[in-house]
């Protein structure tokens, strides 16, 4: 899932300072699981903003709503009607959600309340770690199920760099060297020969071109158009 972190309150407060009627929109999926942008966090941000404005003796009206997924047209379309009543929107979704809602309600300024950090896993409540950079050319089949693009800070595709020390990463001794782990995983599975294959240059164009994925069924139905 997508992992995000709440922006500092001062930054959010400053961004929406000119507005008196603000709608805060939460998202009930990834950011709710990582405890930064779900219904509870919408309530919390609303109270913080009201309190801060109140202390300054300024007027502020806040609306709160949380939808199932802000990255899904089906769930945000009904928001159009509400939004007309507000001067500005604060979205607590990931960057995709903020943009999609902003695109739909393009007449109103939209402000993100979180910094989208990465695609990762939920180790336990409150502990998340990165696993994938969405490179669109997944290597996990040949790297023992450990991502070299993400877990090695240099994204090396052909083995450890010269900086690894005792299986730790040169970038941060707290972290394990991804390539040492890949080697060990492959060795445990009796597949270490796999590491001898030279992987070619990464096809970056797969990430930087249209950035669209069209499901085959959709293509059949609509002939490849959106």
């Amino acid at each position: 899932m997508i992992i995000a972190e709440r922006k500092p309150f001062a930054e959010i407060k400053a961004a929406v300072a000119p507005y008196e009627k603000i709608l805060i929109v939460g998202c009930g999926t990834c950011v709710a699981v990582c405890l930064v942008g779900g219904e509870k966090e919408v309530g919390l941000l609303a109270s913080q903003l009201k309190l801060a404005r109140g202390l300054e003796g300024k007027h502020l009206e806040i609306g709160e709503i949380t939808v199932e997924r802000q990255c899904d047209l089906e769930f945000i379309r009904p928001l159009c009607d509400f939004i007309a009543d507000y001067d500005a929107i604060i979205s607590m979704a990931c960057g995709a959600g903020v943009q999609y809602l902003g695109q739909l309600c393009y007449m109103r300024p939209i402000f993100p309340a979180v910094n989208t950090a990465f695609i990762g896993v939920n180790e336990e409540a409150g502990l998340y770690s990165e696993r994938c950079l969405a490179c669109n050319n997944c290597y996990l089949a040949v790297t023992g199920g450990i991502c070299p693009v993400t877990m090695c800070p240099k994204g090396l595709l052909n083995g450890p760099c010269g900086g690894t020390i005792n299986g730790r990463c040169e970038v941060d001794p707290e972290r394990e060297c991804a390539w040492t782990q890949i080697y060990q995983r492959l060795e445990n599975q009796g597949r270490q020969e796999q590491m001898r294959e030279i992987l070619p240059l990464h096809p970056h164009d797969r990430r930087t071109t249209s950035g669209k994925v069209i499901h085959p069924a959709y293509k059949r139905r609509y002939g490849g158009h959106e």
């Binding site: 450890p160 010269g162 690894t164 005792n166 390539w179 080697y183 270490q192 590491m195 001898r196 030279i198």
Partner: peptide, 19 residues
């Protein structure tokens, strides 16, 4: 290119050397 004689574990370094 560079090779790290004291790399630990050694085998991944050796594989990289050969690559």
């Amino acid at each position: 290119a560079v090779v790290i004689p004291e790399a630990d574990p050694w085998v991944p370094q050796l594989i990289k050397f050969e690559k």
